[in-house]
Deep mutational scan, measured.
Amino acid sequence: MALNTPQITPTKKITVRAIGEELPRGDYQRCPQCDMLFSLPEINSHQSAYCPRCQAKIRDGRDWSLTRLAAMAFTMLLLMPFAWGEPLLHIWLLGIRIDANVMQGIWQMTKQGDAITGSMVFFCVIGAPLILVTSIAYLWFGNRLGMNLRPVLLMLERLKEWVMLDIYLVGIGVASIKVQDYAHIQAGVGLFSFVALVILTTVTLSHLNVEELWERFYPQRPATRRDEKLRVCLGCHFTGYPDQRGRCPRCHIPLRLRRRHSLQKCWAALLASIVLLLPANLLPISIIYLNGGRQEDTILSGIMSLASSNIAVAGIVFIASILVPFTKVIVMFTLLLSIHFKCQQGLRTRILLLRMVTWIGRWSMLDLFVISLTMSLINRDQILAFTMGPAAFYFGAAVILTILAVEWLDSRLLWDAHESGNARFDD
């Protein structure tokens, strides 16, 4: 018995066209964080690309023209004298008006014999932002004059995390709450300039795509075929072959399989920071003279006294001054041990922890910024005066060393310790 099946006739004509040209192939790229070699397709503007294995951002879609970056830099340069030299806060102490600005706080630190601690604050609040705007201006002028731009481009990517104007702005709020127990506070004209400078700096850093600047100024022929001998440069993120001198053909720094002496430098910085954190938390970090009496505060006791007036601000200072430094030390110690013992479990967790400490590390400088600003506000000789204690130097040095330890660690070593050939990683 035959089955009668109805015929289905399409209502619209289906047209099949042959592909007349070869589909576009992607360029081969190595991930600078996990060293995976993959094919990167062509990316349009405002599109980002991520590593298929570790999800690290390979290409950032946010990109401004150099002219727009230069305009932002010149605007920031105009704001800087007002943000640093004009009063941020006014207080009335014992019937006398006192003005506080950024430069005055750094000068008070240096004047009291601790120039190293003052230079830490100076670099993060004044030096690094000033280098940022002058570097962008150098790129703008240098591109037109045919100057060598490689050193500036190499420095810009590392400079971003040292620009800490946003953290200093939080420190202004913390210092205001600490001082309000002794005097009446009012915002100064410099505060508005400083807030504007923070906003412009944040926007500029978020749109400063150094890798795209490398592509514009020093374009290189990408690798179009897969080759395990391809290496990625950690300076400019170019994937290719080393030249005859073993250097990256684009930025001219040595092109090595792994960062040289990464573990040794990381261990040295980490152990030194552990040693410095002990006096930083045991010795007094601030000293207040009130009517001839002397009151010393460690980091913890200062947080407890701050909690009596504002528990939320005390929580912020606790996280930045105690929780973050010790968390960074514990995480980095764990990561280094996992590399030495070739741990194969929990790779995803370790990668996330490394990215976390990379982002939060700079916030530990908050305590030094609060001390710097408070020193310029309260300084009335023996009637009422505020000065920093010996722990300030140890704390600042420990924070900087932990930042350097994270920067010096080559994250690809975590993958080397893991089993080879993993296309995915999980716990």
Rank of each mutant, 00 (worst) to 15 (best):
H252T: 08
L300A: 03
T67L: 14
M332P: 06
Y218N: 04
M155H: 05
Q112V: 05
L205E: 15
I185K: 01
A115W: 02
Q55C: 11
W107L: 10
W214V: 13
R158K: 11
L89N: 07
Y182T: 13
M109D: 05
S364K: 02
Y394F: 10
D99Q: 12
T67H: 13
L271E: 03
I330K: 08
V133E: 01
L40A: 12
Y138C: 06
P32I: 14
A175V: 04
D426N: 15
A423R: 08
R221P: 10
G127F: 01
F38H: 08
C251E: 00
N101F: 02
W92E: 03
R62N: 15
G240C: 05
R247Q: 13
S301K: 08
A314Q: 08
R260V: 04
N291R: 12
F369G: 04
T204S: 11
A397G: 10
E228Q: 08
L3I: 11
L282T: 09
C124H: 01
T110V: 07
M332K: 07
Q108R: 03
T134V: 08
S411E: 11
L89M: 12
W359K: 14
Y182D: 08
K13G: 11
S45Y: 15
Y241F: 13
Q220P: 06
L263M: 13
F369Q: 03
N143R: 15
I371W: 01
I253A: 03
H418N: 09
A196L: 13
A391L: 01
A49G: 07
I330C: 12
S273Y: 02
S309V: 02
E407H: 09
N379W: 02
V125G: 06
R17L: 12
P279F: 04
L414Q: 06
C251R: 00
I319T: 14
A73Y: 07
A320S: 06
I288V: 08
R247I: 04
L94D: 00
P219M: 09
M388W: 01
I311E: 11
C34Y: 00
T110D: 13
G346Q: 14
R59V: 09
I311P: 13
R62M: 12
S262K: 02
I360G: 12
W92G: 04
L156H: 06
H46V: 13
I319K: 04
A175F: 01
N291I: 15
V232H: 08
M120P: 01
T67E: 05
L37Q: 09
A269I: 02
R256P: 11
Q47T: 07
Y182P: 01
I316L: 08
F393C: 14
R412G: 01
L368Q: 05
V102K: 01
P222Q: 10
L79T: 06
R144F: 06
I322D: 10
V357F: 02
T67S: 06
L230I: 09
W107R: 11
L401S: 06
R30C: 12
G361W: 01
F425D: 14
G85T: 09
